[in-house]
Amino acid sequence: MTQRGTRLSAEDWADAALEALGRGGLAAVAVEPLATRLDTTKGSFYWHFRNRDALIEAALLRWEERGTTQVIADIETDPDPVAKLRRLFATVIGHGLTHRIELSLLASADHPAVGPVLRRIGERRVAYVAQLFGEVGFEAAEAHRRALIGVSVYLGNTQLASTAPSVLPATDAERLALISSTVDALLAGAPGPF
């Protein structure tokens, strides 16, 4: 919440839209409830956006930036591809709110603004993970296959975190051990030590 009189940015509105999306799906991204939540008027919204669709597009770009672009940039600070894979899985499987947003977006994949973004992000994620497996030494086709498995593990974990959290590890240590085992399995047969 902001204090009335504080000028909100387009990013503030997009962040609020993402939070609403994570709580209640695409239908929860509505101008009046968001204005109330932000303690502002609809006029603030119209200062930044022409309509709800423009807000949804801005929120999707913000989600892509945070959940993919920034994650990749952070992972790329490490020169070791195996360490990158381990950090990547530990990072993405640990994102609670991101999971809820991701699931809400997947449920709205037929929306004309959502579908293309999900497709672009899915392709980018698979390509990046394949790049990491390529850096480990796998041939392109095998790197791509392992990337598909890895991204599928992430999506499956995301689904389980929402629908059946009791089946997932209860402690951080157990979660990290599972992630480590997953990456070890994906690296099995890698050309060279890891």
Rank of each mutant, 00 (worst) to 15 (best):
P33H: 13
I179K: 00
D12Y: 03
L118C: 08
R37P: 01
R66H: 09
P116N: 12
L118A: 09
N157W: 12
R37C: 05
L178G: 04
F89W: 05
L105Y: 07
T171S: 15
A107N: 11
A27N: 06
Q3L: 14
L186C: 03
Q3N: 10
K42E: 14
F133V: 09
E19P: 00
D80G: 08
Q131V: 01
T2K: 10
Q3W: 08
S162W: 09
S9C: 02
A30L: 07
R37K: 15
A14F: 04
P116F: 10
A58G: 04
L103T: 05
S44M: 00
F133C: 12
T171N: 12
T77V: 12
L38Y: 06
R86N: 03
F45N: 00
T69Y: 06
G96F: 13
E123R: 15
L8F: 00
A90Q: 12
S181G: 12
D53I: 09
A14T: 03
Y128C: 04
D74Q: 15
T68F: 14
Q131D: 08
L187M: 06
H99C: 13
A177D: 14
T6D: 11
V126E: 15
D15K: 05
E11T: 11
D172P: 06
E102S: 11
P81E: 06
V136D: 10
S181A: 15
F138I: 04
L186Y: 01
L8W: 00
Q131R: 15
E123A: 13
L105N: 07
A27Y: 02
N51M: 01
V153N: 02
A17H: 03
R124H: 14
A141R: 11
G150M: 07
F45S: 00
L186K: 01
P79T: 12
V114H: 09
V151L: 10
W47M: 07
E102F: 09
D74E: 15
P169N: 12
D184A: 08
E102A: 11
A35N: 09
I121M: 11
T182D: 02
F45D: 00
H111E: 06
H95A: 15
R87C: 03
G94Q: 11
G150Y: 06
A20E: 10
H99K: 08
A107Q: 14
L105M: 13
L186S: 01
G25A: 13
L21K: 03
L186M: 06
D12C: 01
G67R: 05
L60T: 12
I93S: 07
A59F: 09
K84Y: 06
P191F: 14
V114A: 12
A17T: 02
L97W: 09
N157V: 02
G192R: 13
E32Q: 13
D110K: 15
I72S: 05
L88M: 13
L8Q: 01
L187A: 03
L118I: 05
